[in-house]
């Protein structure tokens, strides 16, 4: 008996079934979600990224930041993410509607970045962190992204340019971020997943009632 067609049919059936169950069925629900209208501000969440932040997402992807950083906050009972202040609530599918590509990450060798735009809104902090993380956090294992910056020695009596990082970053040199670094920082500043959504209320119920930007719960 020729079993080859049986192997083909069996494999095909298994792959078709799992494709339907894990890809098609969820696609019909979470894949068709739309951005939520925030009643108080009239803005949509998540907002699509434009300009520098959009380019920054590609810089994030190209440097492989997702190798060490995740962009997913777990619920309160399941790990210390919310206790660490990485988010006010867990992340859900709606948070990634505007991402291209979605970089949720899988390994943490550094903090989660879902809400880094809220935790660290300062651009200079991010630029210094990228240039030399150990300036800000001694003992950090983050690589130095010196190639995202132009580093020029400062001559006698020459003032550093306006765009340069603070002098303490590299004494005797001016460190000017390249457009990629600026875009990446704009992207990081846009990372925030703190609008309470129906599927992801704030863990403390009273906070939901008091939340200014809470949308009406779905029926």
């Amino acid at each position: 008996m020729n079993q080859t067609p049986l192997i083909f049919l069996g494999s095909f059936a298994a792959m078709a079934a799992s494709f339907w169950g894990l890809v098609v069925a969820p696609q019909n629900t979470i894949g068709r979600q739309q951005a939520t209208l925030i009643q108080d501000t009239g803005a949509y969440y998540p907002a699509s990224r434009t300009g520098s932040a959009e380019a920054g997402a590609q810089v994030y992807r190209a440097q492989g930041c997702a190798e060490c950083h995740t962009q997913q906050v777990r619920p309160k009972g399941q790990g210390g993410d919310i206790d660490r202040g990485w988010g006010r609530r867990r992340t859900v599918a709606e948070d990634y509607l505007a991402d291209q590509p979605v970089q949720i990450g899988a390994l943490r060798l550094g903090p989660d970045l879902s809400n880094i735009g809220r935790r660290q809104p300062d651009a200079t902090y991010h630029l210094q962190n990228l240039y030399n993380s150990r300036l800000l956090k001694p003992g950090s294992l983050m690589p130095r992204y010196t190639y995202l910056f132009d580093v020029r020695p400062l001559g006698e009596g020459v003032k550093p340019s306006e765009a340069a990082l603070p002098a303490a970053t590299e004494p005797g040199f001016e460190v000017i971020p390249k457009p990629e670094a600026i875009a990446l920082v704009a992207y990081l500043q846009s990372l925030a997943a703190d609008v309470p959504l129906f599927s992801a209320p704030f863990p403390i119920a009273k906070t939901n009632a008091a939340a200014v930007v809470a949308p009406a719960p779905k029926q």
Partner: peptide, 14 residues
Amino acid sequence: YEPYNTVEEVELQW
């Protein structure tokens, strides 16, 4: 989503 089990449980948060 985790840790809720039903839509009603989620609704109770609101």
